[in-house]
Design a protein around this nucleic acid. Sequence first.
DNA 1: GTCTATATAAAGATAGAC
DNA 2: GTCTATCTTTATATAGAC
Lengths: 195, 195
Amino acid sequence: MKHFSELSAMAEKLVDVAEGLIEQHGYKGFSFDDLAREVGIKKPSVHHHFPTKAELATVVAQRYSHRFHTQLIAIEGKGANPKARLLAYANLFEQTYEKNRRLCVCGMLGAEINDLSVETTIEVRKFFELNLDWLTAIFSDALTKHALRLSASPEAHARAYLAALEGAMIVGRGMTLNKQPILIAQILLDSWSVA
Amino acid sequence: MKHFSELSAMAEKLVDVAEGLIEQHGYKGFSFDDLAREVGIKKPSVHHHFPTKAELATVVAQRYSHRFHTQLIAIEGKGANPKARLLAYANLFEQTYEKNRRLCVCGMLGAEINDLSVETTIEVRKFFELNLDWLTAIFSDALTKHALRLSASPEAHARAYLAALEGAMIVGRGMTLNKQPILIAQILLDSWSVA
DNA sequence: GTCTATATAAAGATAGAC
DNA sequence: GTCTATCTTTATATAGAC
């Protein structure tokens, strides 16, 4: 299996387009022919870069997780307080959702999990674990600093926050609403704020 | 367009099976042939009951909303306190999720909204509106009775709670976790509880 | 209402030439 | 790396007989 860090220029272009199509239509919602047309080659040429659709999806999820991780580290680096970091986190989702209500790649793939290859499902799981680990660390920090009023464990708050953001995009899309991730994040952060 | 209340026995059977397949695989994840085999007729006979797949999906969403509404009214009837009613609400999602991590029909369709007929998207929107209206009423009641400590409007809490439950199923499915809706509901309700 | 037969289109994928 | 040609399967849908 190819790794996302060793992709040719065309392979990377294909991963770019596939990522966008998954955000808009899901794994089952795009074809190699769609990809081919968008990058300007023919369908069999796509197979040269990615033998199967499952492999392509796996690489998309891998690279998406990696990029997300990089952005999480960037938020860390700013040294802001826990609440500000959690809001910056929500903004990562907002940035995707802003583009015509696109979903998180792994949120979409999570919904489609019953129809993905095992390799892809492993990447999806890793994405969520990565996010929960990072969020748990932030909530732990908030607990130590008494920066938020937490009624349950940092792990529990991490789960609730992630679920609310993923769900905000699903429901928001279903109702054609804008600004959903940020709105929901603000409601939760307010309710966890110290008086 | 046929209404779900005037379906023949076979049409109803088809809607039953279609509902289950949407919960597991989504709109794009099942075919008329899948349906036909499950109910024991041939593919063209399915078209006799539902000319198009889009029409079938619309009826599935309509009936799903109607049933959900009935269950909401049943929760009302028990006269419990707001927190207990919100927990009973979360249990409606849990009951679906318990069945091998099935998603809410309209959560799944919400994710697929870009590839649905307008008629179906209208039903999906109605489902969410119905839920938000009901939840808003409960949170309003909680506010009046000081049964919960709310940092934002009842509408805002309704949105956050619904998003968290829908997202809990998506993330939980992506990580192969059980009991997600109820767990997330408890975290939020605890954090909104009066000290 | 259900069937067989069929039309039509699209999908994932491979073979082999350039 | 990309192409044309092709295979195979599946999907939505229709025509028309029983």
